[in-house]
Every structure is written in C-alpha cells, then in structure tokens.
Amino acid sequence: MKKKSHLIFLFTAVILLFTACVKDTDFDQSDDILLTPAIVLDFLFFNLGSENFTDIGVNNLVVSDTTFFDLLIEDFTIDNLIKADFYFKNTNSFSIQLNTQYQFLDENNDVYYEIIIPVNSGSLSNPVITEHIEIIEEGTIVNLTKADKVVVNVIAPSSLDNLDGILNLQSKTIYYLSLEQ
C-alpha cells in the first residue's frame, strides 16, 4: 500500500513537472515593441569672413559650399527616421543682414528640402545670435531621406568688400527614429 502511494506520488509529481504552463501572457505584444531613440549629432559648422566673398570676385554677393551627406539616404535612415529637428545658431558680426540657405539635393541636384534663415546684422564688438529650429515632421521627412547632399548658400544683400566681420554657424540635428520589430 505504501509502495503504491509512493508510486502515485511520483507519477503525479512527474506529470506536474512536465505539465507546467505559461499563462497570463500575450506574446503577440512583441509586435508592438518599438524603439524610439532620439539621437543628437552635430551637423555643419563654419566661420565665414568677407574674404570668402571677395576671393571669388569683387562685389560678389553669394558664397556656396556643398557636402555630401549620405547618412540621410542610408537604408536604415529611410526605414526608421520619422522626424528631424535641425538647430542652427548663427553668430554674425557683419553689420549687414545675411541670408543663409540650406538646400537638400538628390543625386540629380533636384531640391527636396530647403531651409532659409535670415541672419540678423551685428557688429564686431557685439555679434548678434540668430537661432533657428527647423522641425521636419513625418509628412515631409521622406523628402529629407531622398537627399544625399547639402548645398549651403550665404547671400549678402550688398557687397562685403569693405566690411570686416565673421558669420559663425553651429548646428545640430536630433534624429527621431522608430524601430519596429
């Protein structure tokens, strides 16, 4: 009788061990897992003097430079970038207002996004800071991810030939990603 009860106990225990269950869980929730990191990176910076204008020619009013920026057209970026905040900090000691223009172009030089920032005039003794935040939301972010280069134009309304000063730019971008499982 004792042996029988022990065997029943053993059998029951083994059955229980092999019939352990997982409950009150919903593994379909894994489809909802979403990584949403916000990554801040420095963008462009420069220091622009009047010689950058005059080296091109007398009374030249526009200077330009271009950089590729393939980060925007990486598959990872195209698939996951949902928003981008560009922050531009212009410090101007020229005594005239300048316009800065950022054009995001694709390989055919088609413009997909453009940012224009009027920069307030300052002075050598009192440089003036002009800040600009450009928030590119979900509806237009697709344009940004088609551009592989950025053209920067700095436009003066009048000649800088006889003006001293510096236009300093600092900038950063916060990239908002959404990574699904």
């Binding site: 990176l41 330009s64 430079d65 950089t67």
Partner: peptide, 23 residues
C-alpha cells in the same frame, strides 16, 4: 571626437568639385 562637418567655402571655379567633406 566627432563635431560635425566644417565647411570652408573654397573659391571654386566652374566645373570644380566641392571638397569631399563627408568622405
């Protein structure tokens, strides 16, 4: 140490390529 891309605005002539900053 990464601090972005510094643009130099070189005086390029027609047909000159911009500097390969990103590369």
């Amino acid at each position: 140490n990464l601090d972005g891309i510094e643009l130099l605005f070189p005086p390029l002539g027609n047909g000159d390529s911009s500097l390969p900053y990103y590369e």
